[in-house]
Design a protein around this nucleic acid. Structure first.
Length: 437
RNA sequence: GCGGUCAUAGCUCAGUUGGUUAGAGCACAAGAUUGUGAAUCUUGGGGUCGCGGGUUCGAGUCCCGUUGGCCGCCCCA
């Protein structure tokens, strides 16, 4: 047993685990690029104030933060949003619009590890800056859906719940709630799915118990699960803002439908996301069975770039975490088994043959083929076993008999045939055989 | 931060009311096998039984503490 353990919530990636992680990264990157998003990265360590400015002082309890040797208050990044807002804000006037950026990065949160939650984890973040209309949400939600479908997940496996904090504000304003009450009520809505009526207790303590008819109206809106019901519920509250907002909804749902993504998107006003900085559409991706934590979350945050010192710049973004995503893929049998496979395995007779083999081995590797051979001298039987286990398609046999004739024996390990090839032709022959296969 | 539960080999686990030198399967390695394939047989390496303390003639086993894993609460950007 090792004397030192890794820290709680920090994972070690042995080669098979890293192969699975890289599988996520590879398809995330590939998908983002097909949507025209560009990759960026930024420091892992940031000023503590960057996160306090965005989330308030209480965030400090959830951060890996410390004072560095220069007396700076710093924190390991717990998320990418403030950082990307700073990057984009600093060059906003020089960046071509729309700004479509993504990153794959590790984050750190000082929280208790649980299923689907670690203290160090990776996220795929995608953000679109500079577009105030629902065209931005269309792009982001389409990218989110495709980033999950790319792994083989279907509409039976996951869906995106779509909601709108603006509509909640309009609705509650029309019901006569002021801004403070509205924010408290959104907190209750956020918790309602999990806590039921208890979710309203903090509101009641601050503002007095809700009148039964008011509560019924809140619960009715919270329970809206399709667009027709949404329109019907809002019909009595006609107004210009509301009409324009419903037009945004129609456009967003229509465009997602045109992309063939309707079955992945569910209207659900029960989602508001706890974060106060979201300003419009919000969305979360969940597994259909409801067994796991959220797979992804995102929404519009039109005020954040300015709040963090940049120009006013509308933005929409989302993040997918690697932990829940990995669990879902394992559950659905969609995580491939990654077995490292060589292209060529060299079977080598003895010391003299070894010297002759090295020229070919190195030349093949330099040409891009993965070539393995036994590091130490070994019986032929064992070498052929190793060749088979290496996954190689071809074995190159450097035996005394062959070299005496000036040839190398090439064995096809799949169909089990052999032929002699002149020593000088090995590279060309291997290339022909492997390229043809 | 709070509560529950668990911890024996790389992995999955067994280990009797406390009793000699802690076991199995898988995995890994060597041999059978100095020229042909995932088999088989034989053999081997690998453990301060998470860590620390206590009770006892004697602790993997009982008690206390601690660390870590898992589950739930808080939180979840």
């Amino acid at each position: 047993m090792a004397s030192f353990q890794s820290l709680p919530g920090f994972r070690e990636f042995y080669p098979d685990a890293l192969a699975r992680r890289n599988h996520l990264f590879r398809l995330w990157r590939q998908t983002a690029r097909t949507f025209g998003f560009e990759e960026y990265d930024a420091p892992v360590l940031e000023p503590l104030d960057l996160y306090k400015a965005k989330s308030g002082d209480e965030i400090e309890g959830q951060l890996f933060n410390f004072t560095d040797k220069g007396g700076r208050e710093v924190a390991l990044r717990p998320e990418m949003t403030p950082t990307v807002c700073r990057l984009v804000g600093a060059r906003a006037s020089a960046l071509k619009r729309p700004i479509k950026w993504f990153s794959v990065a590790e984050f750190y949160r000082y929280e208790r590890a649980q299923k689907g939650r670690e203290r160090a984890f990776f996220q795929f973040n995608a953000d679109l800056f500079g577009e105030p209309g629902p065209e931005a949400e269309t792009e982001l939600i389409a990218l989110l859906v495709q980033s999950l479908r790319a792994f083989g997940l279907t509409a039976q496996d996951f869906y995106v719940r779509l909601s709108d904090r603006n509509l909640w504000f309009y609705y509650l304003e029309a019901l006569g709630f002021d801004d403070t009450q509205t924010r408290a009520l959104l907190g209750a809505v956020d918790k309602f799915e999990k806590h039921g009526d208890d979710a309203f207790r903090p509101y009641a303590e601050a503002h007095g118990a809700l009148a039964p008819e008011r509560k019924a109206q809140v619960l009715a809106f919270l329970g809206v699960k399709d667009f027709a019901t949404l329109e019907k519920t809002l019909a009595p509250l006609a107004g210009e803002k509301l009409a324009a907002r419903l037009a945004d909804w129609r456009q967003l749902l229509g465009h997602l439908g045109a992309m063939g993504l309707a079955e992945f998107v569910a209207v659900d006003l029960g989602v508001v996301r706890g974060l106060a900085y979201y300003t419009g559409f919000v969305f979360e991706a969940f597994d259909r069975k409801g067994e796991l934590r959220a797979i992804a979350g995102g929404g519009r945050y039109d005020n954040l770039v300015e709040k963090l010192g940049g120009p006013a710049l509308p933005a929409v973004g989302f993040a997918i975490g690697d932990v829940t995503m990995g669990l879902l893929l394992e559950q659905r049998g969609l995580m491939p088994a990654f077995v490292p496979a060589a292209d060529v395995y060299a079977v080598i007779g003895g010391a003299a043959e070894r010297t002759a083999a090295f020229a070919d081995i190195h030349a093949l590797r330099a040409a891009g083929w993965r070539v393995d051979y036994p590091l130490r001298e070994m019986g032929f039987g064992k070498q052929f076993k190793a060749a088979a286990e290496s996954g190689a398609k071809l074995a190159l046999i450097y035996g005394g008999d062959e070299l005496a004739k000036g040839v190398v024996k090439i064995r096809d390990l799949v169909v089990r045939t052999e032929r002699d090839v002149p020593c000088g032709d090995v590279l060309a022959t291997v290339r022909d055989v492997l390229a043809g296969a």
